[in-house]
Amino acid sequence: MLKQEGYYGEELKPYEKLKSIIEEYMHYYNNKRIKVKIAGLSPIHYRTQTSQSAA
């Protein structure tokens, strides 16, 4: 999404709109995206879980 789909084939977007798209994607990528390789958790949840078990 961020690399191409967020702007490809469309007119140029204002800076604030582009910034908003990037921030939304970063939130999704870190908080909502599920990865099978990390036990079906999002990256943030996985890091939180592993840091708590190491303490």
Rank of each mutant, 00 (worst) to 15 (best):
E16F: 09
R33H: 04
H27M: 03
S53E: 15
K19A: 11
G40Q: 03
G9Y: 04
K37R: 11
G40E: 01
S51Q: 09
Q49T: 12
E23R: 06
P14G: 07
K37G: 14
K32V: 11
P14C: 05
E5N: 09
K35R: 11
T50P: 01
K3S: 13
V36I: 13
K32L: 10
E24I: 04
Y15G: 01
I34S: 01
S42R: 02
K19E: 12
E23M: 05
I22W: 05
K3E: 12
A54T: 04
K19T: 07
A55E: 13
M26E: 15
I38M: 05
G40K: 00
H27W: 06
E10C: 10
E5C: 09
E5I: 05
E24Y: 03
L12T: 12
M1K: 09
S42N: 02
N31I: 02
T48R: 14
A39Q: 12
I44A: 14
Y7E: 13
Y29F: 07
E24G: 05
G6Q: 07
Y29I: 01
E23H: 06
K13E: 12
E10W: 09
S42M: 00
K3D: 14
K35E: 05
P14S: 13
R47N: 14
L18E: 09
E16G: 03
L41T: 03
R33D: 00
H45S: 15
V36Y: 13
E23G: 03
L2H: 14
Y28F: 08
A39P: 00
R47Q: 10
N30S: 02
N31T: 12
G40P: 00
L2I: 10
N30W: 02
K13G: 07
T50R: 10
L2E: 12
S51M: 06
H27F: 11
N31C: 07
I34D: 01
H45L: 15
L41V: 02
Y29M: 04
R33Y: 02
Q49G: 07
Y29Q: 11
S42K: 02
H45G: 09
